[in-house]
Simulated scan of single mutants.
Amino acid sequence: MNNRQQLKNKVERQVKRIKKAGHEPRPNLPSIGTLGLVMILPIIGGVYLGHWLDDRVEGYSTHWTLSLLFAGLVIGIFNVYFLIKD
């Protein structure tokens, strides 16, 4: 019985300490660097691929570059959303 009472007192003291310290679980957000990478990499990839495709077309064209820039932006936004959502 004495061991149980000691354990109970010890646990109660720890609970009081934790509450006093204001210990609350922090949200599990990824670092800002990771968010930046998952946002910017699809944009850069889209621009690079679009520029490469535009070079293959005769004449001056930015159709693929602009289209894939927009697609990369949309993909990047979805990546950030799904990463933060978890």
Rank of each mutant, 00 (worst) to 15 (best):
P27L: 11
I44P: 05
W52D: 06
F78T: 01
E58V: 06
K16P: 01
L73Y: 06
I18K: 12
T62Q: 12
V80C: 09
K85R: 13
I40P: 00
V47L: 13
K19Q: 15
T34L: 13
G45K: 00
G45W: 00
R17E: 15
D55A: 07
L69A: 13
S67N: 09
S61K: 02
L41I: 14
V74K: 00
K20R: 14
Y48N: 02
A71D: 03
L41R: 00
L69E: 08
E24P: 02
N28D: 14
M39W: 09
A71F: 05
I77A: 13
V47I: 15
I18M: 14
A21T: 05
P42Y: 08
G45I: 10
V38Y: 10
Y60V: 14
I44K: 01
L41Y: 10
P27S: 06
M39C: 08
Y48H: 01
L37N: 04
V74P: 03
V80Y: 00
H51W: 10
D86C: 05
F78I: 11
Y81F: 12
L73A: 14
P25A: 12
K19R: 13
T34S: 07
A71V: 12
G59I: 05
L37M: 14
I43R: 00
K16H: 08
L35M: 12
L53G: 00
H51Y: 10
L49K: 04
S67G: 12
L68N: 09
G22M: 07
S31I: 07
I75S: 03
L68H: 07
V38Q: 02
D55R: 04
H51N: 09
F82H: 11
G33I: 09
D55Y: 01
G59E: 08
I18E: 14
V74I: 15
A21C: 01
I32E: 10
E24N: 11
P27N: 05
K19Y: 06
L35Y: 04
G36A: 08
R56M: 12
Y48Q: 03
G22W: 06
I84A: 04
R17N: 15
L69D: 11
G50N: 04
P25N: 09
I84P: 02
I44G: 04
T65I: 07
D55W: 01
I40T: 11
L66H: 11
I77H: 00
W64H: 09
K19P: 09
G72Q: 03
V38C: 05
A71M: 10
F70L: 15
R17H: 12
A71L: 15
R17F: 14
K20H: 14
S67L: 15
G36N: 06
K85N: 12
K20A: 15
Y60C: 07
I77R: 02
V57K: 00
I40L: 15
V15N: 08
T34Q: 09
G22N: 12
